[in-house]
Design a protein around this nucleic acid. Structure first.
Lengths: 150, 150
DNA sequence: TTCATATATTTGTTACAACAAATATTGTTA
DNA sequence: TAACAATATTTGTTGTAACAAATATATGAA
């Protein structure tokens, strides 16, 4: 559906404003879709994002500061996102020996298993996407977004 | 900056996953940029979005339900967004005569003036964009996002 | 050493988001 | 014309986001 239909606005000031609104709208649309999946598992997209980052380091540790650097959604609230993951037993928190200002976050076996479980629905979502969009178009989309953020 | 650099992840499973992550990342990036502007005015992007929708109806009224339909971020919390706009004197709330389940929301003169003030910084942001992206690319970006959401 | 400064994370507070349930009005139909 | 369902908005609750301030550690200079 064209963005004009989606938000029932037939005209935009210019193509740039239209693109801005379209990006915001599409990201919200994506989030709403993904939230359907996440709510079954009692976590939010941000928790999933953090868990994947921590998993990417396995079997090594990563600190909250490093996590923050590569997060999709830069927030200064990594602490409480990790709180929840600790509570659910998906990661462990240890003070880092070499630099005690840092904290070592390591994924647990439960966390790894959980990631395997939850990644299935996402693969299905991507399979749906392949029907709507050619791979080249997906590449082009990424390139335009990269340009956009300059 | 390429998304690979931005989140320090050199490989993605496929172009689709990369595009998904890029959309989310770009929308967050946009929000962070805009929040700079909004915080000076003590409102959030959602409030601005609602105010613009109400303004689009001026001098007629619009109901919360109609606002919700065309919002960029579908939330069922239009009530409290309007609460804030009422508190700031930007809109008025009256019960609709023809259907008393509905509520008439109308923008005030203060609201119209406020919109004029706040729209300046956004125009500047768009001017920056015109340097990074040709108008045709902006169009193409919108088209790909439209396709993406199917 | 001691002090100031920078770094890394946590904590406190306030406002907002998400979800469910409640309230009020209107339309329908037996 | 009750009774029931549908519609439109509000309210309550819980968790999270955003911002500022606090805590703790490390680093470098006098």
């Amino acid at each position: 559906m064209k963005i004009e239909e989606a938000i029932k606005q037939s005209k935009f000031e210019n193509s740039y404003q239209k693109a801005i609104i379209n990006i915001i709208y599409t990201a919200n649309w994506l989030r709403d879709q993904q939230q359907e999946t996440f709510k079954d598992y009692d976590i939010l997209p941000q928790h999933y994002n953090v868990l994947r980052i921590v998993n990417g380091r396995y079997p090594n540790a990563i600190s909250p500061g490093e996590i923050k650097e590569v997060m999709l959604d830069k927030g200064n609230d990594v602490t409480r996102l990790i709180d929840k993951l600790v509570k659910k037993g998906f990661v462990k928190r240890n003070t880092c020996e070499s630099n005690r200002r840092k904290i070592d976050i390591i994924i647990t076996k439960e966390g790894i298993n959980f990631l395997k479980q939850i990644s299935e629905p996402f693969k299905k979502q991507i399979q749906l996407l392949t029907k709507a969009l050619h791979e080249k178009d997906a590449e082009k989309l990424s390139n335009l977004l990269d340009k956009f953020r300059t």
